[in-house]
Design a protein around this nucleic acid. Structure first.
Lengths: 145, 145
DNA sequence: TTGAAATTGATAAGCCCTCTCAAAATTCTA
DNA sequence: TAGAATTTTGAGAGGGCTTATCAATTTCAA
């Protein structure tokens, strides 16, 4: 049992590592702690952020580790524009996105009723939801003219 | 007024072209007709599909044209994996997905209540929805053991 | 402690998409 | 309708983001 601020996710990671014969490294711990402070981040952004304290951390390692987090259910990759955003699944207030197809504007929102209906749909099909992704595409007020 | 199976979209395209001082070309007509037969397609897939009958149609032209369709409101780009999917906006019968993170099983579903709530959220934020994407990730019955 | 196996960092390579530019096609003008 | 002006096309070069490669290092189980 790990202790500390992010004990739950640390345990989830360790369990995933053990199950797949992977190893717990300084870099993985480092990147996990940095990642969990964010709601969502790109590999590039994390690279620059960590470079301040760990200048020798490679970009490839960041990518590999964030993808590992996705496998472990801690992160979720989302393609946004030309880059990949890694979302923090455990972040409270999971939010969804309204995306304007005209100007690219993004509005975040949260809706409990929708989430409840999602649970119902999942239950009807024998699924237990771990996470979800909802993106609404349309035109914002300004672009509708 | 265009005639034929896809008259409505053809008119929409011509109107957009006229408004922006662009030209109506053989390639644009060709690609539009091929595109409207699909629910969604990638530029690469369309390139190979059209190569059978028009081997000299360039990939860059496909990309340019599909992006033009997006500007004209006929198509909509969506990043999926490493590629861009161009969705046929006029296509009805949108469905969502339940995805098992254990075995990869995918179940399609449709839920009017969720769609209604989506409309409400969008309206509250001044958006008019063109399309959406909803994916629920979790474990199916079998994988939960 | 020791050896097998996994990971790392640097960079090359790959993929997807856009840019460039001369030749061709379309549209406008008279 | 002929010619001029403008846009588009096709082919390949270029660019951004991500993954593959590989020798050196680190982890972990026995």
């Amino acid at each position: 049992m790990a202790s500390g601020k992010y004990a739950k996710e640390m345990d989830a990671l360790k369990e995933h590592l053990a199950k797949h014969h992977l190893k717990f490294t300084r870099q993985r711990e480092l990147i996990l702690n940095a990642f969990l402070r964010q709601e969502h981040i790109t590999a590039e952004a994390m690279y620059h952020q960590l470079a301040k304290t760990d200048p020798h951390l490679g970009l490839a390692t960041i990518y590999r580790t964030l993808n590992l987090f996705c496998d472990a259910g801690i992160a979720q990759a989302r393609h946004f524009g030309s880059q990949t955003q890694y979302d923090n699944v455990s972040h409270k207030g999971h939010h969804d996105h309204l995306i304007c197809t005209g100007c690219g504007k993004i509005v975040e929102f949260e809706n409990c009723e929708i989430e409840k209906l999602q649970e119902e749909v999942a239950a009807r099909n024998g699924f237990s939801i771990q996470t979800h992704r909802l993106e609404l595409y349309g035109l914002c007020t300004r672009c509708r003219n």
